[in-house]
Design a protein around this nucleic acid. Structure first.
Lengths: 195, 195
DNA sequence: CATTTATTAGAACATTTGTGCTAATATTAT
DNA sequence: ATAATATTAGCACAAATGTTCTAATAAATG
């Protein structure tokens, strides 16, 4: 799908944005990847944009932005989940976690840990956990779940006697059997704590 | 030091970089902040650059980068501290933590937690803690210290009977009295964990 | 082999954009 | 008030830059 030349162009754009802080011009790309015509670069740029790797504003210099380089973006932080609302509805949204990484192929949301049910796993009250919705948590992973479509919770996932459970990391809490009231959100991939 | 107009310009630049992903042109700034001459903007830009708020490449369009907007930069991750070497020497450097925030007035380094001496504070083995060298940890804070100039450690700071101690968050470890062998690095300001 | 499709080049054009210079007008300090 | 400093405007120029059109060449396909 992406030709050798296009990959080269992509890499050069990413490198430039990373090191200089702004995107290269068509002519700079031209020279960097060994092409002799700006229109050839335009040709490749158009392709890369269509494939979703790049963005660009018309007639605006150095306006290429990359979705494959580590870039800043905000992960929506969800607070109280409102019943019936889709997860990312306004009602649930309490802020944005400034994040830094690749954008393509990830569906990230953040939840603020509420309570101490996972304290023995080092997840503290008010910690922010980042959840990748595109990863299904396996046994032993920490996953995020929606209970009765109204309450989000973060727990270990495990199988006991052929049944799946949400397992807290705190002896004061009990395992929760996974049934039709529990919807899976995704896997907890990282943790952020401000002190 | 920074005039009203300059602050307005700074904010507009930051906003533009954040929302569009690239910096505005002199003329765009001109219009946005209600000035009628591009040279006036140049005048203010020069000041903001001299004050360290902005960077810019000569004769290159949209090349303004901001040091006051949340931007990407790498925090050096220090591993084993080599005796005698300055903290940030090559020898100690094991990588970079991609970070996202304001650059001005911060001196950040990252340490990888080694061991479980702070486990009851939720700092786990292999967690990365970010340390702000410009903040002196107070009692109750978690600070980073250098012991005998060769080993970095992260502990609570506390005063017991008028003496200062480094206090682990794990009953299997003992307090360490602060003496001339212990150098202060800074305050632990945030924590990252990848799962 | 004939026919698409992908890639490249060249050149010309219209804007966009940074810069420099001069002068006018506020604002502040002496 | 007078002088120094800060801020603004206007204009013109040169360079940087995105775009478009046509045509040539290479690669892939049936």
């Amino acid at each position: 799908m992406v030709s050798k030349k296009q990959e080269e162009i992509l890499n050069y754009i990413n490198k430039t944005i990373n090191t200089k802080g702004y995107s290269p011009t068509v002519r700079e790309i031209c020279e960097a990847v060994g092409l002799k015509s700006t229109s050839t670069v335009q040709y490749h740029l158009k392709k890369l944009i269509n494939l979703g790797y790049l963005n660009k504003s018309d007639n605006i210099s150095r306006s290429i932005t990359s979705r494959t380089v580590n870039t800043q973006f905000g992960i929506p932080i969800l607070g109280e989940i409102s019943a019936g609302q889709p997860l990312l509805a306004e009602e649930n949204y309490i802020g944005e976690l400034p994040y830094f990484g690749k954008k393509i192929n990830t569906e990230l949301i953040a939840l603020k840990i509420n309570g101490d049910s996972m304290i023995d796993a080092g997840l503290y009250n008010d910690d922010l956990v980042v959840i990748d919705k595109s990863i299904i948590p396996s046994d032993g992973d920490i996953g995020a779940f929606l209970i009765h479509n109204t309450e989000a919770t973060v727990k270990y996932v495990g199988t006991i006697a052929d049944k799946r459970y949400l397992i807290p990391a705190n002896k004061n809490y009990s395992n929760i059997e996974v049934d039709e009231n529990i919807t899976q959100i995704g896997k907890v991939v990282s943790l952020f704590r401000d002190m």
